[in-house]
């Protein structure tokens, strides 16, 4: 079963701009959270903080109920309990197999045990036939699966995903999301994923946090979020938008369109 994550009074300041100010976010063990918000809302920064790659300027992250100590040795041990799938997965200049085995090697897992686990996850994700390919011989969808395998092979307590399936066609993306939800739920892995496409939320998330200007403006189950049809389109044309506007309170607050 995965562990819980909690962020309390997190502040991140870049340059002199405050990019993140999250008062409280609690992700219970085994839950899947979606973080949604417009470009530049601070989604990736929040993900970096929660994946313990970026130390916030203020506030505390709790990992499995204990406050995270950012000392080098301890942070490495905690990082080894989680896995991250990045927006642009950078695969190393070697075979798919070696790429997937990398995190295991860092943890001292080698030989037949590593081989068995890599093989298992390559098969689960349907890319076992690509094992000896080099990254530049993969299609976009295949590379995404490799980066997913690279994370899941670690059998992490927590999985964090930063727009993992952006730039994939809609059917492939939907299939991967449904498949991923089944995998996560089957193993009870706690997960948090970042997206700017609210169509992804019902496919994967138990709960949603809407992030805007670095703040969480709404949380709830995907279907309880008051998605609105108000947006810049309405603001500019006076007509109903052909697309729903997924960020409640964002546009309407600023422009007073209502």
């Amino acid at each position: 079963m995965g562990v819980g994550l909690r962020a309390e009074r997190i502040k991140v300041i870049k340059g002199r701009v405050q990019v993140l100010a999250v008062d409280e976010l609690e992700i219970a063990s085994g839950e899947i959270w979606g973080i949604i918000g417009p470009n530049g809302a601070g989604k990736s920064t929040l993900l970096h903080v929660l994946s313990l790659l970026e130390r916030p300027d203020e506030g505390t992250v709790y990992f499995d109920g204990r406050p995270v100590n950012w000392r080098r040795r301890e942070i490495m041990e905690l990082r080894r309990q989680l896995a991250v799938v990045f927006q642009e997965p950078l695969l190393l200049n070697t075979t798919v197999y070696q790429n997937v085995a990398l995190g295991l090697r860092f943890r001292g897992i080698k030989g037949p045990e590593a081989g068995r686990r890599v093989q298992k996850w390559l098969e689960i994700l349907g890319i076992a036939h690509l094992a000896l390919r080099k990254p530049w011989e993969l299609s976009g969808g295949e590379a995404r699966r490799v980066s997913l395998a690279r994370a899941l092979v670690l059998e992490p307590q927590v999985l964090l995903l930063d727009e993992p399936f952006v730039a994939l066609d809609t059917p492939t993306r939907a299939a991967l999301l449904v498949e991923l939800r089944r995998l996560l739920k089957g193993r009870g892995i706690t997960a948090l994923f970042v997206t700017h496409d609210f169509m992804e939320l019902p496919l994967l998330a138990d709960r949603v946090a809407v992030l805007c200007d670095g703040r969480i403006v709404e949380t709830g189950r995907p279907r309880d979020i008051p998605w609105s049809s108000w947006g810049p389109y309405r603001g500019q044309t006076g007509e109903e938008s052909p697309y729903p506007w997924p960020w409640p309170g964002v546009w309407t607050r600023d422009e007073g369109a209502k």
């Binding site: 790659l53 990082r79 950078l90």
Partner: peptide, 24 residues
């Protein structure tokens, strides 16, 4: 790629493992 070190660290690399990976 500028983001490579963060991604390697996220895979659980120690500082020495990170250096060796970047070297390769």
């Amino acid at each position: 790629p500028p983001k490579l070190p963060a991604q390697v660290l996220a895979l659980g690399a120690s500082p020495a493992q990170l250096f060796w990976t970047l070297l390769k």
